[in-house]
Simulated scan of single mutants.
Amino acid sequence: MVQVLLGLLGILLVYYLIYFVRDLVASRGNWGGGSFLVSGIIGFVTDAMDTLGIGSFAPTTMLLELTKQLDNDRELPGTLNVSHTIPVIIEAFIFITVVKVAPLTLFALVFAAIAGSYLGSKTVSKLPEKKVQFYMGIALIVTAVLMCLRQLGLLDLLGTGNAMTGLTGIKLVIGVIGNFILGALMTIGVGLYAPCMALVYMLGLSPLVAFPIMMASCAGLMPVAGVNFIKSGDYARKVSLAITIGGVIGVFIATKFVTGLDMNVLTWIVIVVVIYSGVTYIRKGLR
């Protein structure tokens, strides 16, 4: 089962790379503003944090805003999805291990997330900048709340005593609809990890089962969403390439060498800054 899933992710990676590389070549000399070095550092830091379980979308949004890397905020959703696609797929290849999950449940939820991201990316790319700013602000606040719940252990409480490894009947339908919505929300910047974990907990699945589902969902949906943003041109090319390169390095460094960090303190700092960034974007969107 794991080999089949990794094979599908490999195919999606190739599919994504064809569009990404072709677009960069066709647009050479017109990759937009931003600093390659600064964006690369952002990718290194945020994807290292993602590998350690903090997530990458909210910190990337925060750092891109602080360093003023984007020419306009309308490029933000596309840049997030395009720039983190390859690092997230690498994370999936590294961390998806043999976990007993009912095949129907795993594939149904993963493909629901992919379908949601396809629809969401088609919609988000047509939004005006003010609406993107407003929705990004809401997305950041929602992400911060979910991060708080996870830090306080409240999400884990939902899964206490759960032992199921698969869904059937109405619970499977709810899971598919839920992950479809989460896949669509990923395209406006709402990270999938925490809400997906809450979803599978509430449906009665074992906490361990959450990990292959949420990691495979992200690795499956991001190439699809990323290609749609690439086709529409609604992303920052130079920034996305730099974050991708820095992010790949960050994933491997975090996997092999990062130990002893006080992740609890770091996560709370990120939450505070994410809330501040969310309020800032909401104000921009309403201004």
Rank of each mutant, 00 (worst) to 15 (best):
M62D: 00
K122A: 12
F211N: 07
T51R: 08
S206H: 12
A210Y: 05
N30W: 07
V142N: 01
F134R: 08
L199R: 07
W268E: 02
T51E: 12
F44W: 09
A184H: 01
A112C: 03
L119F: 12
D71Q: 13
F95C: 09
G204K: 13
I213Y: 13
V124A: 13
N81Y: 04
L37C: 07
A163D: 07
V101F: 09
V227L: 13
S277D: 05
T267L: 06
V190T: 00
G161F: 08
V273R: 00
L24I: 13
P212N: 14
L167S: 11
A242S: 15
K171D: 14
C148F: 10
R22T: 08
K131I: 10
Q69Y: 10
K131M: 15
G55H: 02
M147P: 01
V272I: 15
Y135F: 15
L199G: 03
N264S: 11
V274C: 06
Y281H: 15
A112W: 02
L64Q: 01
A144Q: 00
V2L: 15
F57T: 00
G78I: 03
K171I: 04
L17K: 14
K131D: 05
T46I: 11
R283D: 08
Q69G: 11
V142R: 01
V88Q: 12
K130L: 09
S35V: 14
K284T: 08
G153A: 08
F229A: 07
G285S: 07
T79H: 09
M164D: 14
L192K: 02
G183V: 06
L66A: 15
A184W: 01
K284A: 11
A225V: 06
D47S: 11
V21W: 12
G10N: 10
G233I: 15
S83V: 11
L12V: 04
G34R: 05
V265S: 14
M202K: 07
S117N: 08
V110R: 00
S240M: 10
Y276S: 03
V2C: 03
L109K: 01
A48C: 09
A184R: 01
Y118H: 10
L286I: 15
D47I: 12
D71R: 14
G153P: 02
L106T: 03
V142H: 01
G78C: 09
G166M: 08
Y118W: 15
L140D: 00
A144F: 00
F57M: 10
K231N: 09
G169R: 11
G32C: 11
R74L: 07
S277A: 15
L203Y: 13
C196I: 03
L167I: 12
H84L: 10
D234C: 09
T85D: 06
Q3H: 15
L127W: 14
F107N: 11
V99Q: 07
F252L: 14
G169W: 12
K238Q: 12
K100T: 05
Q151N: 05
I253M: 15
K171C: 08
Y193P: 01
N228F: 07
T143V: 03
A92H: 02
V99L: 00
K238S: 13
V251T: 12
V4P: 01
G183R: 03
D262S: 14
G34K: 05
I42S: 00
T160L: 10
G233V: 13
